[in-house]
Amino acid sequence: MNDMPEPGAAAAAHAANSELVRDFGLLIKSATRLEQRIDAALRRECGISHTMLEVLIRLCRRPGEKVSQRQLADDLTLTSSGTTRLIDRMEEAGLVRRVPSPEDRRVALVEPTTEGSATFVRAAAVHARVVEKFFVRPLAADDYARLTGALSDIDKALREAAD
């Protein structure tokens, strides 16, 4: 039996341990852990998921605006079928309602219910508390400003590259 690493194993290990892989992994792990904390708090305190909160944010941003399911899918980077199932669950929970589009009978628009808006206000406070505790407070004010500025720059570069 040969205990020598196969050719290429050293190159693979070097690539797997690169700074870029490590740093991006840290970003993803941190974002995932924060999202899990937010989701757990929202489920425990408000009975909704983080994804449901994201829908309510989009629907409550401009009072009176109705948003198509397709637009929600695009905004939340969900599949069309995933969005349909999510809106089904939210409708069953009394958080949103579908209404026909006045311009196109084939399109269903989504709007928050009174209960959905009230749930959103409670959930936004829970979200803010968790974000403050785990995203804002661990950093000095200058570091937080640099981090959010850098994330904005990254987002802008990605949006421009997609165009």
Rank of each mutant, 00 (worst) to 15 (best):
R61P: 00
A125I: 05
V55L: 02
A161P: 09
A13P: 06
A73I: 03
E35D: 15
L158R: 08
T113V: 02
A123E: 07
A150C: 03
E91D: 13
T119I: 06
R89P: 00
E19T: 12
P5N: 15
L151G: 10
A93Y: 00
T79F: 01
K66A: 13
T79P: 01
A41N: 03
L151R: 15
T51A: 05
V136T: 00
K29A: 15
L59M: 01
L109I: 07
K133S: 07
S30D: 14
L147I: 00
A9R: 05
Y144S: 07
E65Q: 15
A11N: 10
P112A: 07
G82A: 04
R70C: 09
R137F: 06
L86K: 05
R85H: 09
L78K: 06
T84Q: 10
R33P: 04
K66Q: 14
R97A: 09
A123W: 04
V99Y: 07
D3G: 14
L109M: 09
S152W: 05
P102E: 10
T32C: 06
K156E: 15
E19R: 13
M52C: 09
D39F: 08
L86Q: 13
V55S: 03
Q69M: 06
H14K: 14
L42W: 09
R106D: 09
I87V: 13
I154E: 07
V110D: 03
S49G: 14
R122D: 14
A140S: 15
R106H: 09
R146D: 11
S117D: 10
T79Q: 01
R58F: 08
R70V: 14
M90K: 02
V136W: 01
D143S: 11
Q69P: 10
A128R: 12
